[in-house]
Design a protein around this nucleic acid. Structure first.
Length: 465
RNA sequence: GGAGAGGUGGCCGAGCGGUCGAAGGCGCUCCCCUGCUAAGGGAGUAAACGGUGAUGAGCCGUUUCGGGGGUUCGAAUCCCCCCCUCUCCGCCA
């Protein structure tokens, strides 16, 4: 979420960001500013009325204490008009606030000046390529064939048991997963991250905090746990209060139930990334300056709907609905966030180095980066048989965009006003494509697979044959 | 799942329908005192929003005592709904 001041003071910049990211219409900004005017006018009027009301109430109190009941009664009558007025103005303010909230959530984060302007993935900047791509004097097999041959992954049975994109890992395949988990977490811990285990479902507030809601709802699975009672009461009260519905409560409940059902958010979302619970860990907190920087690492499964993808894209482990990942999260002082971004990038890259995988670093262009990010690097490993790059990490600085939604602040000095922190995260790393690359890049003429040395202590075996 | 108790400022903890943003304590900041340390004395210590200033300082106002509704001229205090925490019972990996 952007700061309203930013929108008010530099509407052009915001419009430019919308255009550069290709998300939504710049007209949003003008609409928002109009609503803002309307909202503030209503607030001012409301507050003035409330102030008058408070004065009168105090006077009434004073009169009553002095036993001048008649005078008090006369004054009470005067307040009834104010009461009506306040009720009306409150609704006006609520409506403007709701409208404004909705609009401001649709504004994307402003890209950092160093981000290249571009439309899509073709405009990303290939910043650097690392490691040697392997060459073979035989036809390298794609990872799904290798996995099949060695009995490492079973997608068919996963599809039977759950659905497509929910793999079983077996034998050395399963052990490799467990090895990667420990390998990545150990490295992260050594690099100064505190290990964390997080809940795997989050509520809508958390999903909104990190920016999965409202803009990327299609990304997540949703668990609906209807608990209509409170919503129902609220709507019923509100409608009856407005006199829009006769006061037969049973009838009201029956009529509005379907409406409410439609309006309701799911109660829980299985996490699409551990970024969500980990970053929200500090939601609505004011940290002290000494607490910063905070660095967390966590392992979790991730669930993604990945609607609309098909073809070679989704063969084997290229894109699945459930996968494992170690995530790195940093919460830092605003002045430190770009230094932290470089470090975070180095953390992720060092794991790829240790795994001896060839990879490249992309600086994402404005059109291909996410809604919430100010600057993003993607890391992609080389998949030797498919002859394509596979994304295994996305390392992002959100600046204050998430922090503002989550209200994560810190106090620069003991007495000073709280300020927003900056948040960052990066995969370190996502398992399935790492497995794909490990299998494809390290296959031998005899069909066996040699694992990089760094993994041996974790797997307990050096090759798969 | 059943029964009970409770949620007040950074923390602990008072609070009668009006003078309560809230006593008292702890912590923190600044000052004084003490030759050092410890102790002592004084002052100050919430956030959000709106208005006015220079989008600074300050000033004025509004809101906030778990959340949402309601009653009332006026609610931390009364009523309703929800959430959370704790204790006991049940169930369970």
């Amino acid at each position: 979420m952007l700061d309203l001041d930013t929108v008010r003071n530099t509407p052009r910049r915001v419009k430019e960001a919308i255009r550069a990211k290709g998300t939504g219409s710049p007209v949003l900004v003008d609409t928002l500013l109009e609503v803002d005017e309307k909202r503030r006018a209503a607030i001012t009027e409301l507050q003035e009325t409330q102030s008058r009301q408070n004065d009168l109430s105090q006077q009434i109190g004073a009169l009553k204490r002095e036993g001048k009941d008649a005078e008090a009664e006369a004054m009470i009558e005067k307040t009834s008009q104010l009461k009506e007025e306040i009720k009306r103005l409150k609704e006006e303010v609520w409506e403007a606030e709701a409208e404004q909230e909705e609009l401001v959530l649709k504004l994307p984060n402003i890209p950092h000046p160093s981000v290249p302007v571009g439309e899509d993935e073709d405009d990303n900047d290939v910043a650097e390529t690392f490691g040697e791509r392997p060459s073979f004097d035989f036809d390298p097999a794609p990872h799904w064939e290798l996995a099949d041959r060695h009995g490492l992954v079973d997608l068919e049975r996963g599809a039977k048991v759950t659905g497509s994109g929910f793999p079983f890992y077996l034998g050395k395949g399963a052990r490799l997963q467990r090895a990667l988990l420990n390998f990545f977490l150990d490295r992260a811990r050594e690099r100064g991250y505190t290990e964390m285990q997080a809940p795997l479902f989050v509520n809508p507030e958390s999903a909104e905090g990190t920016g999965q809601l409202p803009d990327k709802e299609g990304l997540m699975y949703k668990i609906k746990e209807p608990n209509l009672k409170n919503v129902e009461d609220w709507v019923t009260n509100r409608l009856m209060h407005r006199g829009e519905i006769p006061d037969d409560e049973d009838e009201v409940r029956r009529d509005i139930r379907p409406m409410i059902n439609d309006l309701m958010e799911g109660d829980f979302y299985p996490i699409p990334t551990a970024e969500v619970p980990v970053t929200n860990f500090h939601r609505d907190e004011i940290l002290s300056a000494d607490d910063l920087p905070l660095q967390y690492c966590t392992y979790s499964p991730c669930w993604r709907r990945e609607a609309g993808s098909y073809g070679a894209d989704v063969r084997g482990l290229n894109r699945v609905h459930q996968f494992d990942k170690v995530e790195l999260v940093r919460i830092v002082h605003p002045d430190e966030s770009y230094r932290a971004l470089d470090e975070l990038l180095a953390d992720a890259e060092s794991a790829l180095d240790a795994l001896e995988l060839p990879y490249r670093r992309l600086l994402m262009c404005t059109g291909d980066m996410g809604f919430t990010q100010a600057k993003v690097y993607d890391l992609e490993v080389w998949s030797a048989a498919q002859e394509r790059w596979l994304e295994v990490s996305s390392v992002s600085n959100f600046e204050a965009f998430q922090a503002r939604r989550m209200q994560i602040r810190y106090r620069p000095e003991p007495e000073a006003k709280p300020e927003l922190v900056h948040t960052l995260n990066g995969s370190g790393l996502a398992f399935p494509r790492i497995v794909a690359a490990l299998l494809e890049n390290n296959q031998q003429p005899d069909g066996s697979i040699e694992l990089p040395e760094a993994l041996h202590p974790y797997t307990g075996f050096a090759r798969i044959e």
